[in-house]
Amino acid sequence: MNVNYAWVAFHGASDPLGTYKVIRTSDGGVSWNITTITLTDADQGQAGIDRPHFISPTNGWISIGKAEGMQHSSMTIFHTSDGGATWTQLASSFSQSSGLPMSADKNGISFANNQDGWATAEYPGSTPWLYVTHNGGTTWQSQSIPQPNGQQAGTFTTTPPVFFGQNGILPTQVYYNSPNIDLYVTHNGGATWTSTTLANYNADTFSALDTQHVWATQSNGTAIYSTTDGGTSWHAIGNTPQPISELSFVDPQNGWAIGQSTSTPQLYHTINGGATWTQINYTIS
């Protein structure tokens, strides 16, 4: 993968219910092509589409889901093998044969390779909610992971894991009496996961540069937290000008963030690891 490739998924204001668009570029944004995905499942209304997840210029997945209430949600997963020109439905929580349940407020998927992928969600219980596929997303099953260190039960929010070869991290928000964050780590491609250290921070947006350097933003707040030792210790390092919806670091010092604006999203840049942020003025032509 390189800077020439990008994908954006959305539901347009004038698009029919159950219809979604994926636009793609392979020349750094000089030109874009568009593809339409149509849900064929029973429940098409007001579903949200996740960001596309690609592991190569041709091989990618995307999920579409809708909250159904009472800690339940639908999820339908599509796959492309031609860079996003066409998409094929693989699995749906409306089909029992897929193994994807309706339970839990699902929030996304990610893949480590062509076969192994994970689905994550918010769910109350004794252990975090995590589902895994070993056949490219066609069928799914629950993956058992241990309780966080020092935590017996609560509401757990797992977010899609990030992999660096066989090593990976699974950012998790843990809430019981007070909010905490925990990084689960794997060194065997996701076969097993180990809790690190609970940190008493309320965070829900994460950016991982590698298995050691991870940043998190405060839920509905402006604080930025970071770890440089893979989650063993966390520190509050600064504040953004407003609450953040997206966060991405490209090295230990340089990162970008998008504000939670309801009108024109604000873009911010840091050159000191998140300690201070500067607004970047931009235009879209």
Rank of each mutant, 00 (worst) to 15 (best):
W215L: 10
S219H: 14
G231V: 05
P252A: 02
S261M: 07
S248T: 12
F206M: 09
A216T: 00
P171H: 05
A203F: 01
L183W: 06
N188K: 04
H213E: 09
I224G: 05
I169K: 07
S226H: 15
F249Y: 14
Q260W: 03
G238S: 04
W256Q: 06
T186N: 12
L209K: 09
L247I: 09
G190W: 03
D251C: 02
P252V: 09
Q166C: 01
Q218F: 02
N254H: 15
Q166W: 00
Q212N: 15
N202Y: 11
T228Q: 13
A236I: 08
P171N: 10
E246S: 14
F164H: 14
N202Q: 12
T264F: 05
F249L: 11
Q253G: 00
N180D: 08
I224V: 15
T228I: 13
Q242H: 03
W215D: 01
G165W: 04
S248I: 13
V185E: 11
Q253Y: 05
Y184N: 04
T222F: 00
Q260A: 12
N167D: 14
A208V: 05
A191T: 14
T205G: 02
S178I: 07
S233W: 06
P252H: 04
S233V: 05
Q218G: 02
P252M: 08
H187G: 10
A199D: 01
P243S: 11
T197S: 15
Y176I: 10
H187T: 14
S219I: 08
N254C: 00
S261R: 07
P171Y: 08
T232Y: 11
L170R: 02
P241W: 03
G165M: 04
T196M: 10
T196L: 05
T264H: 08
T264C: 00
Q166Y: 05
F163K: 02
E246V: 06
A208Y: 02
T186I: 13
T232L: 13
T172C: 15
N220S: 14
I181T: 04
F249I: 06
T217R: 01
G190D: 09
G168A: 09
I244H: 01
S219N: 11
Y225P: 03
F163E: 10
P179E: 13
A191H: 10
W193N: 03
N200E: 11
Y175S: 05
V214M: 10
Y175F: 15
P171K: 04
F163N: 06
S226Y: 12
T262I: 08
I237Y: 01
Q260G: 10
Y175W: 11
S178M: 10
T240G: 05
N180A: 13
T228N: 14
T205C: 07
N239C: 01
D210F: 11
N202F: 12
S233M: 09
D229A: 09
N180F: 15
A223I: 06
I258R: 04
F206H: 03
P243A: 07
I244M: 08
Q166M: 13
T227H: 05
N188P: 06
S263T: 14
A216N: 03
N188C: 03
L170E: 06
A191I: 13
T222R: 08
P179R: 03
I169R: 08
L209F: 11
Q173T: 11
Q260K: 14
F164W: 13
Q260R: 10
T217I: 05
S178K: 13
S219F: 12
L247N: 08
N200C: 03
T196H: 02
N202A: 10
Y176H: 15
L170V: 12
W193C: 02
Y176S: 15
S245Q: 13
